[in-house]
Design a protein around this nucleic acid. Structure first.
Lengths: 322, 322
DNA sequence: TTGTAAGCGTTATCAC
DNA sequence: GTGATAACGCTTACAA
């Protein structure tokens, strides 16, 4: 059995309250402090955070809701969030939701039961709430008035992509987007892209795949736009790097190569772990800064924080002319 | 304030004990059960796991110690471990140690304070202990007699690599290893490789970089072994995929290409998230099975489990002839 | 079967 | 400044 404060008190010949004070850094007579510290070392005492949490209603535990760690974006975000929380004396309870709304719901129940001090969530159920005074911060999704949303500047990312493609001389642009349509934030990439095209008077098309999990329809669309080995578009913006890479590979099979025949830009900025290089030219999200912002907003004592939008940048990754 | 069992008892007009029984699925009169469930729903009651944990000394929480989630191997492992734990009603406290022994030590203190039911650790301090009756399972490192180690069959992985290279007609083999020298497990890749080479009477060399964090010495070594545009080795086995990919890129810069001029095999089996393809030909570790085994051994009630060694396989990834 | 009450290891409020 | 003591919300004998 692990030693308790009682054991320490007996060993040091002081009362329980004194031990508690020493542990919590409250003023105490020098000789008392010394005896208590001695006893703690001798017995190998450690506070029981469950007893403490029960009493104080503070757990120094933040729940992290992530769809998966298979996607490098989620993995890196989780890495940064956890390190950031650790620096502030918190630890993270990781919950993998597998993109499943029912699992997400159960996680929110767990969060309540486990008395987490807060939640940082990247969910696909914008309507979820914890309703127990537990603060929630959302990443990339708008979840309702009480839930600050941390995101990169998706709109400007779309603008950047369009501007870069136009700057590279592209005249027929294409936007490709795949994935569920959650709460607007990701759709801003399209808006920024389209607005820029219109403003610059550039021709563009948009293809969106909402609930599919294969990009086959994109391939069919592209095939229809290939005439005599030439693609009708000379600049493509994809809403993720993964998609951009798959589109690049598909086009290569059709004899159309990036960046020679078509300029291709993705979104996320995921560098390959081994080489440190981007898989495609991309709009880079500032993952560490997003994590930092999420933690800051979550732990801000007076919760006055609203949404946070962080700047993105374009990075060359081999699928555009340099 | 969140409702407590007392509130539920009052609302349902029953005693505390009865509420507790209903919550814990212990037999109770039908009408009582109904009234209690009604009250729970009405008040939106959830157990307080801190109060429960204090009483029962069971937290259903397992700590995961990982060096980082930047490396896809760690990220995937964490993903599988967490999902596996969730399936068994546990949740994971993620701790990122950043390859830092002092942080690892602090994590073990946290584990005690937070009364985790167990620890699954991938650490660089094989001497760490929790010494509070908290079971520990280690991944890929031998940490001492009481700590079962889950690993892939590193020795056979080395054998497989050597056999494959020989089968492809290689006659001058090379083994490259980088990274800290922790507790033997990873070194078995070298042993399996070398034993096979010797058994088959094949020429081989081994270069090991222990405490460096750059592969520059490898590059120098390889440069010295290039004569008139030809490399002295025709088959290379690297102890990780990351290294294999960097070696491939370096050799390509020297005009030596895999798989035309040299066969290259890595270790880990990390597929690219976007394409699902391996970055290099590789020995694949069964990550999901390792996670499953770690959780099984950890949660096994009578802790009779010893070390577990899981089978690996060779997979083609473009850096060997097919 | 149901209710009562002790106690898990803390913190915090008191008198001293 | 220090030491008793009452909670915190739950589980679990034990009594009814």
């Amino acid at each position: 059995m692990a030693p308790t404060m009682k054991d320490v008190a007996r060993e040091a010949g002081v009362s329980l309250g004194t031990v508690s004070k020493v542990i919590n850094g409250i003023a105490v007579g020098e000789s008392y402090r010394h005896r208590v510290e001695e006893a703690i070392g001798k017995l190998g005492y450690h506070v029981n955070s469950y007893a403490r949490g029960l009493k104080t209603n503070k757990t120094y535990c933040v729940a992290l809701l992530m769809p998966s760690l298979r996607h490098p974006f989620f993995a890196l975000l989780t890495d940064e969030l956890t390190k950031c929380l650790q620096r502030r004396g918190y630890h993270s309870t990781l919950m993998i939701t597998n993109y499943d709304r029912e699992v997400e719901r159960q996680c929110f129940v767990l969060v309540r039961e486990n008395k987490a001090d807060g939640v940082i969530a990247l969910t696909y159920s914008p309507d979820l709430t914890v309703d127990a005074g537990i603060p929630v911060v959302s990443i990339d999704r708008h979840m309702g008035p009480g839930v600050p949303c941390i995101s990169s500047d998706n709109y400007h990312g779309g603008e950047l992509a369009a501007e870069k493609l136009l700057e590279l001389g592209c005249r027929n642009l294409l936007f490709l987007r795949i994935g569920p349509d959650v709460a607007g934030e990701a759709d801003k990439r399209r808006l920024g892209f389209e607005d820029t095209c219109r403003r610059r008077g550039a021709a563009y098309e948009t293809v969106i795949l909402r609930d599919e999990d294969t990009e086959e329809p994109f391939f069919r669309f592209l095939r229809r736009h290939i005439r005599e080995g030439k693609l009708a578009f000379d600049g493509i913006f994809c809403n993720t790097d993964s998609l951009a890479v798959r589109i690049r590979d598909f086009l290569a099979e059709q004899g159309i190569h990036a960046p020679e025949d078509v300029q291709l830009i993705g979104y996320d900025g995921m560098a390959d772990y081994a080489t440190g290089r981007y898989g495609c030219s991309t709009i880079v999200q500032p993952i560490a800064e997003m994590a930092e912002a999420a933690v800051n907003v979550l732990l801000d004592p007076d919760r006055k924080g609203g949404n946070v939008c962080l700047p993105v940048r374009y990075a060359y990754g081999g699928t555009t002319r340099e």
